[in-house]
Design a protein around this nucleic acid. Structure first.
Lengths: 246, 246
DNA sequence: TATTGTGAACACCTTCACAGCG
DNA sequence: CGCTGTGAAGGTGTTCACAATA
């Protein structure tokens, strides 16, 4: 997974296990799909299949929200959508600012899943003067100099950091100082933040490396049509020196 | 995070716990940073801080790879880089194809972390005729019609799916049929694949929803940051001026 | 009768605390 | 002495299997 960086876990914070919270959005998406198809009721078995989990897990997850099913029947789709949305806080709108408008920032800005899911992008900010002023996904890119101002004026509560690695911590410090307590970080660095601020990280290179690990176990190497024949064990000292960032 | 979709877990598959595997890339990145700074040795305490975990966890993780530290001293950075790289399968090159060349696909194609980390992007494919033929990050976008052909010719072993949701399952079926057994999915759908194929998913909307959940618990609603009011956060006068773009 | 909701068992992960060793 | 490596303890998460019930 994409990795975490949330505080140790305030168990009894409000009952719902973190692992369950992480799956609720998946259930919600599956339910939306069913809803579009006009399905009114689902069993845990069906919904679990659509969400890619097993049905016992699904039922236990939902049981943390309350008893919203009907024995012998299943769950009413619309009702469950509402309950999960409410639990996740999606019945209200969250104001998001995207900082860093390169290809990734653009992809995020144009992502349809935002508006429809309780998130409103209220700002695209960049430091590059040649990007500032451009129209992207219907918004004008603004200068990062106005970061604090915009966060306050527009009530931004979630900051999405899509800057190069070198800039990320600085931007993070600024948004936190401006009052933001939730950060979604796409830059390949570990951000340090004060207690009370949540950071979640999305890191594609980490995901690829995890895949590589498993792939290696399957075959013995990429393009491995000649197996582990030729020992790929290199000499005792190797040289890996590289720069890494977006 | 970012969610998973790996098979239940073949414990005793080869010893290393999944949770550990997921952190090794983080350690590796921290080690590379240290290496660039010319640091030759780190203690578990220092490395753990750089990676954002606690030191006991770090030591236990590393202990699954072997005994690569020196009591009373710490770990030799270069040696540890090599050992972790080898464990993750990064001492060999993995051939990657990116399917779907919208903004996200472009961001991925331009991601420097690829080449430097044992991944070689050997193809950018798209179905849109107006995109096919474009030069992106030094490569020419090719027609998705040639998918199977290219996978075979170039020995692609990891497919990155960055298509719209509606196209993702179809593309996935094709890459799997062509022999790919590792898929990194950015499309917001649950892919179904046969046993033996690993899928990892990166889903930004899920991450945002998890943040919203926690944010809601803190305050009571978006825009409500006079709740934690008077406290701590001073006016946003900090001026870290840094370059920001992707 | 079909399906939920859940106690109990199990598996996995994290943390503690200290023995072991350079 | 300082720091690693790890057994043991304590959590958290998953799965099983069945009683409860619409």
């Amino acid at each position: 997974m994409t990795s975490r960086q949330t505080r140790p876990r305030d168990r009894a914070e409000r009952g719902i296990p973190e692992a369950t919270v992480a799956r609720l959005p998946v259930y919600l998406r599956a339910l939306h799909t069913l809803q579009e198809r006009g399905v009114a009721t689902v069993s845990s078995e069906e919904l679990a299949a659509a969400a890619g989990v097993n049905s016992a897990k699904l039922r236990k997850d939902l049981s943390h929200l309350g008893s919203y099913g009907t024995r012998g029947v299943g769950y009413e789709v619309e009702y469950l959508v509402y309950q999960i949305s409410r639990e996740l806080g999606l019945t209200q709108d969250w104001v998001v600012a995207i900082i860093g408008v390169g290809n990734l920032g653009r992809a995020l800005a144009g992502y349809g899943g935002f508006a429809s899911r309780g998130f409103r992008v209220a700002g695209l900010l960049d430091a590059d003067e040649s990007i500032v002023g451009q129209e992207i996904a219907g918004m004008t890119v603004e200068n990062i100099g106005r970061l604090e101002e915009l966060i306050a004026e527009r009530g931004v509560s979630i900051a999405v950091i899509a800057t190069p690695a070198a800039a990320a911590q600085g931007v993070c410090d600024r948004v936190v100082a401006a009052g933001v307590t939730s950060v979604l970080n796409f830059a390949p660095v570990v951000l340090s933040v004060p207690d009370g601020v949540d950071v979640r990280k999305v890191d594609l290179s980490i995901e690829l490396q995890i895949l590589a690990f498993h792939e290696q176990r399957k075959a013995g190497g990429p393009g491995d049509y000649d197996a582990l024949a030729t020992g790929e064990a290199p000499p005792g000292t190797a040289h890996y020196v590289e720069a890494v960032d977006l």
